[in-house]
Design a protein around this nucleic acid. Structure first.
Length: 131
RNA sequence: CCAGACGGCUGGGCGGUCGCGGCUCUCGCAGGAGGGUCGAGGAAAGUCCGGGCUCCACGGCGACAAGGCGGCGGGCAACACCCGCCGGGAGCGAUCCCAGGGACAGCGCCACAGAAAGCAAACCGCCCCUCUCGAGGGGCAAGGGUGAAAGGGUGGGGUAAGAGCCCACCGGGCGUCCGGCAACGGGGGCCGCAUGGCAAGCCCCGCCUGGAGCAAGACCGAAUAGGGGCCGCGCGCCCGUUUCCCCCGGAAACGGGCAGGAUCGUCGCCGGUCCGAGCGGUCCGGGUGCGUCGCGAGAACCGGUCCGCGAGGAUCGGUCCAGAGGAAUGACCGUCACGUCUCUUCCGAGACGUCACAGAACCCGGCUUACAGGUCGUCUGGCCCA
């Protein structure tokens, strides 16, 4: 598992399917590069607070990802976890549940598509409604 | 004990499990693995001042411009900071607040109200005289009213009514003496004393000041690039040498000189540097934009002694204390402490919570702003007891 740092990777992930759950938004993008590595990025905007709040939110998401991604992540995918207003203050078990259910939901949607699907071309078709 | 003033400190402690960043050691061909060690704040914040450091510009004199500062003395590398003192104001007091130089250099402003807001004037009035009895002439500025501010204040004498017109005290101005390094304070003398406020409107006086900032800057690499557009000023003269044209004459190259141009905040004078057929400015395009250094042993921190009212200084001993890339500190458990609630006669038991402001980005000294809770010291006023 590797950290995502470059801006283009985040922009690509933003066009992929996403799932909002409680204190977090999770985006999941298959890379289609035949490499099993899982990469994870974290984002917190100024909207949720100052530097302290944003750093704390990213730390908690990082810890949650460390605990859950090896179990629930799909190989060859990039994940981006976006902090929301309650990320820094939500009770820890609740936050874990949020991330867990978001990951499960995204993994299920991913597995439903056959691996040899016609959209293996680089254009990810309009995401299945991220609302 | 209550109320209050001022100044500090702290910002949960200990242990464990899993993780993160730097450095280092061991193992490994390597990816990496394991061990050790260190790892945010009093404001790290706002980026408001003062410096260090780096690059650029660097000459002198005079005048000017722009910006900043403003009681006095001291501290400091320096400051707009700090300490002590002075003056003014608030408070019973501890204590707090003050852009605290100049209003006879000049300009400007003083809203509303008021008759009148800076030079004296007179709305209601007061007093005297005249007559046609409610008007005219003259004197006055004490009383009324307005205002932030109305031409020294209070009392007495004086007067037709009044007025520093005269007197006492207070206030003020000008010399003088004494104390103090000074700001300033005190004493005594003289002057009856109209010459308001705002300088945080412009201004005057004194003092200080190059510009940009770690994306500073340096090193190593790479390079197909070293080009174009626009604008400004220019595309001169003289001398020498060489070459070319058959000569006169001319052209080109090189060297020197002069005028000229650019630049050093502006102007003037002297001066320096550069350009001399290009130079300067600006924009576009191409390449690079990677890595390393800068980068933390310092105006450092802790403790003692001495000097000083204090800020602080001197000296001795000890310590090494984050440093990186858009950037590392998180999650959980136990226990202690604290707070709230419930049960209990007490001992005690249980549940819940631990929370404020907030995250280093080259580094220091300050200022300002934010801050739940806890805690200490000094002092003031009041009450009670001895």
């Amino acid at each position: 598992m590797e950290r995502l740092r470059r801006r283009p990777d985040f922009l690509q992930a933003a066009r992929a399917p996403s799932k909002a759950q409680g204190g977090v938004v999770v985006q999941m993008r298959p890379r289609h590069d035949d490499h099993p590595l899982i990469r994870v990025g974290f984002t917190a905007t100024k909207k949720i607070g100052g530097a302290v709040v944003r750093n704390r939110a990213k730390r908690r998401l990082r810890e949650a990802a460390r605990a859950l991604i090896p179990e629930l992540g799909r190989p060859g995918c990039d994940y981006v976890l976006i902090a929301r207003g309650g990320t820094a203050t939500r009770a820890w078990p609740r936050l874990i549940d949020d991330v867990r259910s978001a990951l499960i939901s995204l993994a299920a949607a991913h597995d439903r598509l056959p691996p040899a699907s016609p959209l293996s071309g680089d254009e990810p078709r309009a995401a299945p409604s991220s609302s």
